[in-house]
Simulated assay, not measured.
Amino acid sequence: MTVHPTDDPVPGDAFSCNAVEMQIIARSRDLGGFAVRRALPSSRRRLVGPFVFLDHFGPSIFKPGEAFDVRPHPHIGLSTVSYLFDGAIVHRDSLGYAETTRPGEISLMTAGRGIVHSERTGLEDRKHGFSMLGLQAWVALPQSLEEGSPSFQHYEAQTIPEHSAEGKTVRVLMGSAYGLSSPVRQDWSTLYVDVALEAGAKLPVDAQTEERALYIVSGEVDLAGDRFGVGSLLVLRPGDALMVEAMTTARLVLVGGATMDGPRHIWWNFVSSSQERIEQAKEDWKQGRFTTVPGDPEFIPLPEV
């Protein structure tokens, strides 16, 4: 996906739960009937571990003839992590990969020094209509790999470790947690966990990971007397363990990892530890120097601002 500018909401009052460092309300935007909430980046917090971008799209209903279409666009210096709860997205990239991401699966595209991809609706869904709900995250690459070779990996749903007990289902998408370890490639210490909770179920969150945040996809949860709903990104204080209780049926993700090896510049779809490198990427896209996506001649022009 691509970055769209939106204003950050005004921060609210202090919380009862000391473990919550800050609450970021995801900025919402309607892209022609397609709702997108952006939790990261924010003016208040640029990264949580390696996570520099977190988009929550849907739930949305597309009628027959309607489609989700993100034309070819470039990336550098990051990996995109696409994860769906509902619907399907057809990924095509300049390496020649064409893969459909479905619920429970993970598509990991590592941009390195540069890649171009599109994200579109498949022909059958265009014909019959479909619903869509999912997340796309960007994780920054360590400085040593920012100019590495681009790549793409797809992980089937059954390869993602999962455990259900006491009213909760935990799926470890990246990294290790709750006694499970994901096979998904990580180039930096990364934590990404999908959690489904029944009303009244509790989720412990330990303090082992250096930087952590909880994002509420659906429902409402309680942390030490404070209630949080859909679109809340709760950045947690380092070193504090806590317990999350679901007030309703709820879905949330735990994201984070080790502190990155320095700050990152983010402009449009480009992430880099060097502002000069981003300026080069802008010019390269403007001048048509990126490799194109086979069979998809359209493209998103470089933004004017």
Results as ranks from 00 to 15, higher is better:
Gln158Trp: 11
Glu119His: 10
Leu141Met: 11
Ser43His: 12
Ala67Tyr: 04
Leu145Gly: 04
Tyr155Leu: 02
Gly96Glu: 09
Gly65Leu: 06
Gln143Tyr: 01
Arg46Val: 14
Ser151Glu: 06
Phe62Gly: 00
Ala137Leu: 15
Lys127Ala: 14
Ile76Asn: 02
Gln136Asp: 14
Thr100Arg: 13
Leu47Thr: 14
Glu146Thr: 07
Ile160Asp: 00
Glu156Pro: 07
Ser144Glu: 14
Gly58Thr: 00
Tyr97Asn: 14
Val48Gly: 01
Lys63Gln: 15
Ala98Gly: 08
His91Asn: 10
Phe130Thr: 13
Arg126His: 05
Ser149Ala: 15
His154Gln: 12
Tyr83Ile: 01
Leu47Tyr: 12
Phe51Glu: 03
Ser94His: 08
Ala88Leu: 05
Pro74Ser: 05
Gly33Gln: 01
Phe51Ser: 01
Phe85His: 13
Pro142Arg: 02
Ile160Ala: 04
Gly129Thr: 01
Asp30Thr: 01
Phe68Arg: 00
His117Phe: 11
Glu105Pro: 08
Val90Gln: 13
Ile76Thr: 06
Phe34Gly: 01
Lys63Leu: 11
Arg113Lys: 15
Ile61Glu: 09
Gln153Cys: 10
Gly134Ala: 06
Pro41Lys: 03
Leu47Arg: 03
Arg44Ser: 09
Pro161Phe: 02
Gln158Lys: 08
Phe85Gln: 07
Pro41Phe: 05
Gly77Ser: 04
Glu66Asn: 05
Ser42Arg: 06
Asp86Ala: 15
Ser131Met: 08
Thr121Gly: 08
Gly32Asp: 01
Ala140Ile: 03
Ala35Glu: 11
Phe68Asp: 09
Leu95His: 04
Val70Trp: 09
Ala140Asn: 10
Ser107Met: 14
Leu145Met: 13
Phe152Val: 05
Gly49Leu: 05
Gly33Asp: 02
Glu146Leu: 00
Thr100Gln: 12
Pro74Arg: 06
His91Cys: 12
Lys63Gly: 01
Leu133Tyr: 04
Ile115Asn: 04
Glu147Gly: 05
Gly87Ser: 07
Leu40Gln: 06
Ser151Thr: 10
Gly33Lys: 00
Arg71Asp: 15
Asp69Lys: 10
Arg45Asn: 08
Asp93Ser: 12
Lys63Met: 11
Val81Lys: 02
Leu78Trp: 00
Asp30Pro: 04
Lys127Ile: 11
Gly77Ala: 03
Thr159Arg: 14
Pro74Thr: 04
His75Thr: 08
Ser151Asn: 07
Gly122Arg: 04
Gly33Leu: 00
Arg71Trp: 13
Phe53Leu: 14
Gly49Trp: 08
Ala98Phe: 13
Phe34Tyr: 11
Tyr97Thr: 14
Ile106Thr: 13
Phe85Arg: 09
Lys63His: 13
Val52Pro: 01
Thr121Gln: 02
Val48Phe: 03
Glu124Met: 10
Asp125Glu: 15
Phe53Trp: 15
Pro72Met: 10
Glu119Phe: 09
Pro161Asn: 11
Ala157Leu: 09
Asp125Trp: 02
His128Ile: 15
Leu31Gln: 03
Val139Leu: 13
Ser60Gln: 02
Leu135Thr: 04
Ser43Pro: 03
Phe53Cys: 08
Pro59Leu: 09
Leu40Met: 12
Lys63Asn: 13
Phe34Thr: 05
Pro142Glu: 09
Glu124Lys: 11
Tyr155Asp: 07
Ile160Val: 11
Ser94Val: 11
Arg102Asp: 03
Arg126Trp: 01
Ser94Pro: 07
Ala111His: 06
Glu124Ile: 14
Asp86Gly: 00
Leu123Asp: 13
Gly129Ser: 05
Leu108Gln: 12
Glu99Val: 15
Leu78Gln: 09
